[in-house]
Design a protein around this nucleic acid. Structure first.
Lengths: 214, 214
DNA sequence: TAGATTGTTAATCGATTAACAATC
DNA sequence: TAGATTGTTAATCGATTAACAATC
């Protein structure tokens, strides 16, 4: 069992490695190759891999791809599927439900809830139910992961309800900064953050024409 | 004109401050208040604000809300709207086009392109056109920002076409690691990264029941 | 005035990078 | 064997936090 911890930075890089490995066709992959692919420092990748790999790599060859994939999946907890519910089935909610590929990340959206839904609907294999059914089902099915795609006005009240029902981790797509107890983790997927980086680049772009001397 | 630069970390925090201020109703806001709201260190917020604020805050009162909002918007480049195109109008693309609120971040999605679209369609005010029209229009309208929501197989080729047409910043929603020239910025919106943090929390959760002694 | 708050300089902390020995 | 590659210890770098003087 791999119980090592790693820094948040490392944790964020790991899915990239995993994606690369899953699409690679060599039998062995070296840290140097991965570093080149993602324009990262070689030592950094080596350290990252050292924390997740159980067998370690071999000099001259690198890491066995299949083993390393397994170790990454295990470390990231992708092995035992996490059931998730999604609350707020608007455009974004629908897009997430339709997104093929969550399974690759150990996520299984089992149910959706929306206040506008009056009686059971379906999107693919996912059932969409009225909000009133939420607490009961989350509790009974012992679901720990909630995806929040309601509008910002409903964000906090809906979040509170999810937590009361037993949700332990919330993937928050609203711009609202949720107030939660310490035991609950909120992962903000904040568009504004990315946009800030992009606008900044576009803004500076004009000035970059004349690079600073020395 | 505010040409100061700031660290990437700071840049990422700024949109949060802006959101908070836009929804605040006091006339003055102190760094301490903001720090409390986002559970950040007070000095950190003070420093962040110091880099963007032109007039600075006043002792005892804090920052004038309206001025600070203006300074943040200016610093982030939200003042002069960035026109953007979106390529790939599937579920996610549609969700982004329908997302009200990009205007708050200085982004204006003017056109969408999709290979499945044969003749002009519309989603709200946004026109969706066939892929073949892309290069020509991006070039003529001098659009610098592209949102990439195609499937991973098309990601690189479509990205190349966008760059050839003059796109300088790409908001990449595909899991593919795009290869781009140095002058082009790619901002990855990678679901896998967030999911890694969430799964990790859920996985560790079980072990946390018994906290380590000392 | 007193004290809340700003802005800044110095200390700390953590993550990245460099250097290098170990190994197949 | 030689050398590519791993894994680790030490040095560097940058960001966060602490301490404090300035000010309304």
């Amino acid at each position: 069992m791999n119980n090592k911890t790693c820094s948040l930075q490392t944790l964020r890089r790991l899915p990239y490695y995993l994606y690369y490995l899953r699409n690679a066709d060599q039998e062995h992959v070296s840290a140097a190759t991965i570093a080149r692919e993602f324009k990262l420092n070689e030592v950094q990748v080596r350290k990252d891999l050292a924390t997740v790999s159980k067998t370690g790599g071999s000099p001259r060859k690198g890491f066995n791809k299949v083993e390393l994939i397994r170790d990454l999946e295990d470390f990231l907890g992708y092995k035992n599927m996490n059931d998730a519910v999604i609350v707020g089935v608007g455009h974004l909610g629908k897009a997430l439900i339709n997104f093929k590929g969550f399974e690759d990340y150990g996520i299984n959206i089992v149910l959706g809830f929306d206040k506008k839904v009056k009686k059971e609907e379906s999107i693919g294999k996912t059932k969409i139910l009225p909000m009133v059914k939420m607490e009961n089902l989350v509790e009974r099915m012992q679901i720990k992961l909630g995806i929040l795609t309601v509008n910002k006005e409903s964000a906090q009240p809906v979040c509170d309800r999810m937590i009361r029902a037993g949700i332990k981790a919330i993937w928050n797509f609203t711009p609202h900064m949720l107030k939660v107890p310490q035991t609950v983790l909120v992962q903000n997927e904040n568009m504004a953050t990315s946009l800030a980086v992009l606008s900044q680049h576009l803004k500076r772009d004009i000035q970059k024409e004349t690079p600073a001397a020395e």
